[in-house]
Simulated assay, not measured.
Amino acid sequence: MTKKEQRDNALDLFVEHGFSKNKIAKTVGVSVQTISAWAEEDGWDETRSKRLKVEKNMKLRIFKLIDHSLEVFEQEINGQQEKGMLKHLDKGQIDGLSKLLAGIKARELNFSDSVKLFTDFMEYVNGQDNKLAKELIPYVDGFISELRKRE
């Protein structure tokens, strides 16, 4: 793995997943001093802050859309009840709500869970066989890089 890929992965772990600099150093395979230097040079704290604001706003907007859709459906159901003609939501309405919710879950779980799993795995391997853990780092980093590119 190149230094650029290590640096990109480190930034991603800091910004997207909130890893500490110590944990990033262990995961990426560089010193904490290197991570601190990269963070300072590239303005990681500001990038993380902006990203969190954007993500929070995006989630709020999606939840507002879901809430609005539910209100419309509830109004429709209440109108049907008043007329004594209660109908189920149609397939399109259910699919729309399901897709919005699935989008939120997929975004939150996919990459983050993979990184967490591999970080935990590497900590386990390191506790069992430090030499093997060091040998695996480039492969794990490469795998995480590929996952990040897919997102």
Rank of each mutant, 00 (worst) to 15 (best):
L100H: 08
L100P: 01
L100G: 07
L100T: 04
L100M: 15
L100W: 04
L101C: 12
L101D: 03
L101M: 15
L101N: 07
A102Q: 15
A102F: 03
A102V: 09
A102M: 13
G103F: 03
G103L: 05
G103S: 13
G103I: 07
G103D: 14
I104R: 02
I104Y: 05
K105I: 14
K105S: 06
K105T: 09
K105L: 13
K105G: 04
A106P: 01
A106L: 14
A106H: 07
R107Y: 08
R107K: 15
R107N: 12
R107F: 14
E108N: 13
E108H: 10
E108C: 01
E108R: 11
E108P: 02
L109Y: 13
L109G: 02
L109C: 05
N110I: 01
N110W: 06
N110D: 12
N110P: 00
N110C: 07
F111L: 14
F111T: 06
F111E: 10
S112H: 10
S112V: 09
S112D: 03
S112Q: 11
S112A: 10
D113Y: 09
D113T: 11
D113E: 01
D113H: 05
D113C: 03
S114C: 08
V115K: 05
V115M: 06
K116G: 00
K116R: 12
K116Y: 01
L117A: 11
L117N: 02
L117Q: 02
L117T: 10
L117E: 09
F118V: 05
F118N: 05
F118K: 11
T119N: 08
T119E: 09
T119G: 03
T119P: 00
T119H: 15
T119K: 06
T119F: 07
T119Q: 07
D120Q: 05
D120H: 10
D120C: 05
D120Y: 07
D120V: 02
D120W: 10
F121R: 00
F121D: 00
F121K: 00
M122V: 01
M122T: 09
M122G: 04
M122N: 07
M122H: 11
E123S: 08
E123M: 06
E123V: 07
E123G: 08
Y124Q: 02
V125F: 02
V125G: 04
N126H: 14
N126F: 07
N126T: 11
N126S: 15
N126K: 13
N126V: 03
G127R: 04
G127N: 11
G127H: 06
G127C: 06
G127S: 11
G127L: 02
G127V: 03
Q128K: 11
Q128S: 10
Q128E: 12
Q128H: 09
Q128L: 13
Q128G: 01
Q128N: 03
D129A: 02
D129E: 11
D129Y: 02
N130R: 14
N130D: 13
K131N: 09
K131W: 01
K131T: 14
K131P: 00
L132N: 05
L132I: 03
L132Q: 06
L132C: 02
L132E: 06
L132G: 05
A133Y: 03
A133N: 04
A133D: 06
A133H: 04
K134S: 11
K134P: 01
K134N: 10
K134Q: 12
E135D: 13
E135F: 10
E135I: 07
E135T: 04
